[in-house]
Design a protein around this nucleic acid. Structure first.
Lengths: 184, 184
DNA sequence: TTCCGTTGTGGCACCAAGTGCCATAACGTG
DNA sequence: CACGTTATGGCACTTGGTGCCACAACGGAA
C-alpha cells in the first residue's frame, strides 16, 4: 500500500507547498501514514526521497553506453545514452520539473545529489576510457562534462520549462564534451 | 590567538588523522582550545572549516575575469583567472593537497561545497554573458565548464600530486570550455 | 488448525549537527 | 574607575540519522 514511490509522491508535494527545509521527516512520515523509523528504512536520508527514480536512470545510462554501433562517434553514443536515460513519459513531465525546481532551490538537496553524480561520472569515465585517446586527462574530462551538461540543461530547463529537456541535454553535451581525441 | 585559520589548521590535521566523519565538532573545539559554541561562530558548519580560503579565491577569480586585454580570446582570460585564483605559494602545497584529498574522500564535504561552487559558476556565467554569442545556452555552459574543469583537475591532482595544479587546470579548461561562439 | 521462521513495522534511546538565548568575561573609551 | 561593546561559553532545544528490541503480519510445514 505505502510503497516507496507513494511516500515519495507525498513528500515531494509537501516539499513544494511548505519548502524542503521547513518540512521535517516527521511531517512527511505522518502525512504518508508511516512511522519516522519506517521512512528511514525506505530512504537513507530525507533528501533521497527526491531521487527514487535515480537507480533506474543510472541503469538506463549504463545500458545506453553499451549500444554504440561500430563506427559510430563516441560523442553520439554518450549523448544518446544521457538523453535516453533521462527521458520520461509526458505524464511525468510536471513531476520531473517540480523535482528539478526543488533541486535548484535547495542547496541541501544538491548537496545530497553528490553521491548520485559520482555514479554517473564513473560510468562516463569508464566509457571514455574505452575510447582511443592519448591525453590521460580525457576520460576524467568526459566524466565531468557529462555531469556539467546534465546539470546545466536541467538548470536552464527550470527557467524555460516549455523547452524540451532532451534537446537541451543534447545541445549542452555538444557544447561541453571534449573534442574527439583522435583528431589531436 | 585562536583565529579562524588556526582553528582550521587544527581541524584539518585531525580530519586527516582520524577521518572527517569520525571526528566530532566537540573534538575539534577541544583540540583548538575553544568551545563548541565558538566553533560555530567561526564556521557556519563543520565542513566549512576546509573552505577558509574560499572567499579570497573567489575574490581573485572575480578580479582575474576583469583583466582581459582588448583582443584577447575569452578562453584565455577565463583560464588565466581560474589558474591565478587557485595558485598558492609552494609552502602551502601540502596543505592544499591534503584539503583536496579530504574533499574527494568525504561526500559530506563535497556536499557542502555546493554553495561555494554556485558562486564560482555565477561569476563565470556573468563573464560569459559579456562575450558576444548567439546560443542562449552559451553562458550557462561556460559556468558549468569552469566548475567541471576545476573539479576534474583537482581530482586528477589527488591521484598524481607530482603534477602542477595550474597546468592541469589549464589543460582541463582547454578540454571542457565550449568552442568560441563567434566561430558558429 | 497450530507451530514456526521470516519479514515489515514501530517505539525507544541515543549521538551529532546546528541554533537561540542568556550570562559573563575581556576590552577599549570616557 | 565606570561604561558600553564585543567575544566567548554554557545550556537547552530541534532535527537528521542509527542501533536495538519488541511485536504484528505473513507463508509454509506438520
Amino acid at each position: 500500500m505505502s510503497s516507496a514511490h507513494e511516500v515519495a509522491a507525498v513528500a515531494q508535494r509537501i516539499f513544494l507547498e511548505r519548502g524542503f527545509d521547513e518540512t521535517s521527516v516527521d511531517d512527511v512520515a505522518a502525512a504518508a501514514g508511516i512511522s519516522r523509523r519506517t521512512f528511514f528504512r525506505y530512504f537513507p536520508s530525507k533528501a533521497d526521497v527526491l531521487f527514487v527514480d535515480s537507480p533506474r536512470e543510472v541503469e538506463r545510462f549504463r545500458a545506453g553506453l553499451g549500444t554504440g554501433r561500430p563506427g559510430e562517434p563516441w560523442r553520439a553514443v554518450v549523448t544518446r545514452a544521457v538523453v535516453e536515460a533521462l527521458r520520461f513519459p509526458p505524464e511525468e513531465r510536471t513531476w520531473a520539473l517540480h523535482r528539478a525546481q526543488v533541486f535548484f532551490a535547495v542547496p541541501a538537496v544538491q548537496a545530497h545529489a553528490v553521491r548520485v553524480w559520482a555514479t554517473w561520472r564513473q560510468l562516463a569515465v569508464d566509457a571514455a576510457t574505452a575510447v582511443p585517446h592519448t591525453d590521460p586527462l580525457f576520460p576524467l574530462a568526459v566524466g565531468h562534462a557529462v555531469l556539467a551538461a546534465t546539470l546545466a540543461a536541467h538548470e536552464h530547463w527550470t527557467r524555460a520549462p516549455e523547452e524540451d529537456l532532451g534537446t537541451l541535454l543534447a545541445r549542452m553535451l555538444d557544447l561541453l564534451l571534449p573534442p574527439d581525441p583522435a583528431a589531436g
